[in-house]
Simulated scan of single mutants.
Amino acid sequence: MAYPVNQAMYPPAFGMQAPPTSFPGYEGLVPGVSGGFLPPPPPQVLPTPVHTTQQDWSIPRLSEEAAREAFTSFVDSHCCYSSEPVKDGVITSMEQFNTFRYRLETFTESRKTEWATKPYEGETMNPFTQPPPGPWEMPVKAPVMFKDHVQELEIPNSQSIKPCDTCSASGRVKCNKCSGTGSITCSTCRGAGKDSAEDRCNSCNGTGKQKCSDCSGQGTEECGTCKGKRQLLSYIKLMVQWKNNVEDFIVEQSSGLDVANLGEVSGKPLFKDALQMVYPMTGFPHPGVAEASEKMVMEHRSKYSQSGRIMQQQQSIELIPISKVNYQWKGKQYFYFVYGTESKVKADDYPATCCCIIL
């Protein structure tokens, strides 16, 4: 988009160093105040329906041998757990409570601007010869999809040079360590001018003062704002943030295992679909997954298209295996869970624990 140049914004009395009062597309941007996130252009791609194909939704049942191996590894990882229930316990029954996890990922790009400064290094500029590109007109290379990333850029044609206010364009400021005096209290005699024997202190020659090491006795140090350059380059900074917004839905199951534990494991991949804008899933055997997909897709589209641009979406379904293993040890009944493709174990009522003291 081309903007007409408004000559009134470029006061000739101030020459090259005077920034315009505003730029087209950046009106209201105040130095020192973030411009906030900028609404993106409307999306151009509309989603199309996707139907899941018929496939094997089942997962093999956990064998007793695999259940016992997982239990053994779990107990071995706990120093305070006795291995007796694993060796002597008898598995009485195993129940399967497999469940589905639907995951929606919405990869977004958002942009915001603010005035910024940095030491002027003598860069060649042609300020105000043409309007700067708009925030969403700046070409920016996107990172790897579905990975968080932040990038900062200078908006072209927004630069101007100004004297550093911090040091009044001198390049130096009062030394903080000595408060500008060039000297500090002697560390040997602590300002007394004498040592413990009441003789003249050799470190400060009896003055009680030492030359400040930070400023070498000058009383001033390099300005931290302009780094001694005396001038600052003022420009509009564009901050681009890519964020992967992830939301999961897990179908309820009646095993008794807290659903929060399932966030730690993976499942058997059943379906994955990646497009700029995905369409809610249809035709999935479990109605809860289809309902969650429709609700989450619509919510993501509404929520993340307001303050950013949706770059791509990805939806997937996993079948998470859950087995409840009931076993008997010393005449009493106990149980543990084996879940996820990693065969993670949860055994809250493990019957043989002790207190360990780690030295």
Rank of each mutant, 00 (worst) to 15 (best):
195 D>Y: 01
237 K>G: 07
158 S>H: 12
267 G>L: 08
276 Q>G: 06
186 C>Y: 08
359 L>T: 06
333 Q>W: 05
316 S>R: 02
11 P>W: 04
85 P>W: 07
13 A>E: 13
254 S>C: 06
290 A>W: 01
54 Q>V: 12
115 W>R: 07
111 R>A: 05
225 T>F: 01
83 S>C: 06
214 D>L: 06
247 E>M: 12
4 P>I: 08
4 P>W: 03
241 Q>A: 07
2 A>Q: 11
352 A>S: 12
126 N>T: 12
128 F>P: 01
142 A>H: 14
94 M>A: 09
342 E>H: 02
233 L>Y: 04
91 I>N: 10
288 G>W: 10
124 T>M: 10
141 K>S: 15
152 E>R: 10
279 Y>Q: 13
113 T>L: 08
209 K>L: 09
325 V>Q: 02
267 G>K: 00
23 F>E: 02
59 I>H: 10
246 V>M: 05
165 D>A: 15
288 G>F: 03
58 S>W: 04
323 S>C: 07
122 G>Q: 13
237 K>H: 06
150 V>T: 13
290 A>S: 15
208 G>T: 03
157 N>K: 15
91 I>T: 14
137 E>F: 13
348 D>Y: 10
304 Y>R: 07
268 K>M: 04
282 T>D: 10
273 D>L: 09
1 M>K: 05
165 D>P: 08
130 Q>I: 04
17 Q>D: 10
29 L>T: 14
12 P>T: 05
331 G>D: 13
162 K>P: 00
36 G>P: 14
98 N>P: 12
157 N>R: 15
256 G>K: 03
244 N>T: 12
207 T>N: 00
182 G>M: 06
116 A>T: 05
170 S>Y: 00
124 T>Y: 08
259 V>L: 12
166 T>M: 10
110 S>T: 11
140 V>L: 12
197 A>D: 10
15 G>F: 09
38 L>H: 01
6 N>V: 11
178 C>P: 03
143 P>V: 09
46 L>C: 03
68 R>T: 14
278 V>R: 01
134 G>I: 00
277 M>R: 13
304 Y>W: 15
199 D>F: 11
123 E>I: 09
302 S>T: 15
260 A>C: 10
49 P>F: 02
145 M>L: 11
180 G>D: 08
296 M>S: 14
181 T>L: 06
320 I>T: 03
128 F>M: 08
266 S>P: 00
261 N>Q: 13
312 Q>E: 15
92 T>F: 07
113 T>I: 11
329 W>Q: 05
148 D>P: 06
331 G>F: 10
299 E>N: 08
297 V>T: 14
171 G>C: 09
51 H>Q: 12
87 K>I: 12
234 S>I: 02
195 D>K: 02
284 F>I: 06
